[in-house]
Design a protein around this nucleic acid. Structure first.
Length: 256
DNA sequence: ATGCCTAGTGATACTAGA
């Protein structure tokens, strides 16, 4: 079983990239972020043609999340529980193959300090409270997506440049660390403790060519799923394609 | 310190991203 996440940065503008990658990578489940389209413009037909069912939660212009799956999807949540007045579409949750799959797009939070950073931390608190409930239920669960946090210095090409950046602020990293302390496993870091494993390269200044990357997209696994973890990777080459997103797809494999 | 890039909106230079 292969689970993937891909911040697509415009699902219609990059539909060709998405379909090409799906055909090559053949993930069983995909969490998408930054759809940048209202619900009625989600490209469901093309995704069905590619062999995937889909659920999504979009909005005009920005944000938006979706889950694709080769097998049956049971929708559990649209939006974060306990955050009905969240102004953005950033969370969707489903049960697939007896696993809880939470797909998230955590706020960027820049510039720091300011209202956007406060919103990031508020969103993180609501998300962590929900994660705790899932953990306490003891269900096999995976919280997958763009966390907009580099957890450690290994996750940043030049850490000293990012000390004041919302993605790397101590408050953001502390929130991520507290979340892990609930008992979640950062799947990619578990298998690759010493490799950067970047998932994002800025469009500016030829960041991809310089490998000036960030690790922003994460898989947090409950214990039963962490025990089944067999592989992980980043499809870095996809970032080099025509019309690429600024993120590359990341994936993990689970046995059985 | 700023633009460097890219998408969306709406028809222009903005916001937003990270």
């Amino acid at each position: 079983m292969k689970l993937a996440t891909f911040n697509i940065n415009g699902v219609n503008g990059r539909l060709e990239v998405l379909l090409r990658w799906l055909a090559a990578a053949q993930p069983d489940v995909v969490c998408l972020q930054e759809l940048k389209c209202p619900d009625e413009r989600f490209p469901e037909a093309a995704i069905l043609d590619a062999g995937y069912q889909a659920i999504w939660q979009g909005e005009k212009s920005w944000n938006g999340v979706a889950i694709l799956s080769k097998t049956k999807i049971q929708v559990v949540q649209r939006g974060l529980p306990g955050y009905a007045d969240d102004p953005h579409s950033r969370y969707i949750e489903a049960i697939i193959n007896k696993m809880v799959i939470g797909c998230l797009y955590l706020p960027n939070g820049n510039p720091y300090p300011g209202e956007k950073f406060d919103y990031k931390l508020r969103w993180f608190r609501k998300f962590a409270a929900h994660a705790k409930k899932l953990k306490d239920k003891g269900l096999p669960a995976a919280l997958i997506g763009d966390y907009n946090v580099m957890p450690t210095e290994l996750d940043v090409y030049k850490p000293e440049k990012y000390a004041e950046n919302a993605l790397f602020r101590k408050e953001s990293r502390a929130a991520y660390k507290r979340l892990l302390a609930q008992g979640w496993t950062d799947a990619i870091r578990r298998l690759y403790p010493d490799v950067p494993m970047y998932t994002f390269w800025d469009y500016l200044r030829q960041a991809y060519q310089r490998d000036a990357g960030l690790r922003l997209d994460h898989f947090l696994l409950s214990n039963t799923l962490a025990d089944r973890l067999t592989g992980a990777g980043v499809d870095k080459h996809v970032r080099g394609w025509e019309k690429a997103s600024d993120h590359a797809p990341a994936w993990i494999t689970l046995k059985k």
